[in-house]
Amino acid sequence: MTSRVYNYLVAILLLVTGWSCPVHSSTLVADLDLDQVSITIDFNGESLLLFGAVSGGTASDIIVIFKGPDVPLALRKKERASGIWMNRQTIIWQNAPSFYHIFSNRTLDEVLSEEQQARLRIGAEHIGLRTGEAMLDKEKAKLWRNALTRNMTDRGLWQLNENYVSIIRGALFRAPVYLPANIIPGEYEVRVLHVQNNQLIAEDTTYISVAKTGVGAMIYAFAHDYSIFYGFFAVCFAVFAGWLAAAAFRKQ
């Protein structure tokens, strides 16, 4: 942890010292305190720190969009049939982000108008979610999209974190990011926007990869690449463990 804080301080220092170059337009630099998130056997989510600096002006508003790889998602609706609830309708979303957290220093609506949010593609309703179905009518599409947002939010995967970005002396900013244990591996995109008076004035994008590593990754690869051997191994392991248990308790 200390080395991560150290990295953070060094990066801030570099950003601040390398600041002297004469720029007219505003620029923005952002980074994370980790290069990679590893899903190891003891993985239970990961806390990250996003930090950065603004030059050529004061940072008025900062918006961060942390987005995981797009995946196909099935959204199912249960209906009551002969007394029991069962899945009756399904809509497939072809390009839903598996992780979508937005951070801002005040409420998003205070920072950007609805039209600007749409133009800058911020928020689940503005990222062009496609369904595999024929055109739904507007009312129904909204119902299903809200249901998707609600379900993803319940899982901690989609979230609007307002008042999460702190701006320090108008130049530096930081935001704590939490990646929950149910994230999927892949390339995560972090878009940082500097906004002033409802206008985008600077933008930076950085990436971080989430990957399975260590024993867990090996077991997963073994199970998928050599599945028949994995099956036999699992059985042999169980027979041995069962025999061992019986032997251990017989002696007592």
């Binding site: 995946v71 196909p72 998602l73 099935a74 959204l75 199912r76 609706k77 249960k78 209906e79 009551r80 007394g83 029991i84 609830w85 899945n87 497939i92 598996s98 299903w144 249901a147 998707l148 609600r150 379900n151 993803m152 319940d154 899982r155 999927i184």
Partner: peptide, 16 residues
């Protein structure tokens, strides 16, 4: 669980 009205009739599943 099968008979009572679920809290949310919608559920999401990752397809691989």
């Amino acid at each position: 669980d099968l008979v009572i009205t679920p809290e949310d009739v919608f559920s999401v599943e990752f397809l691989k």
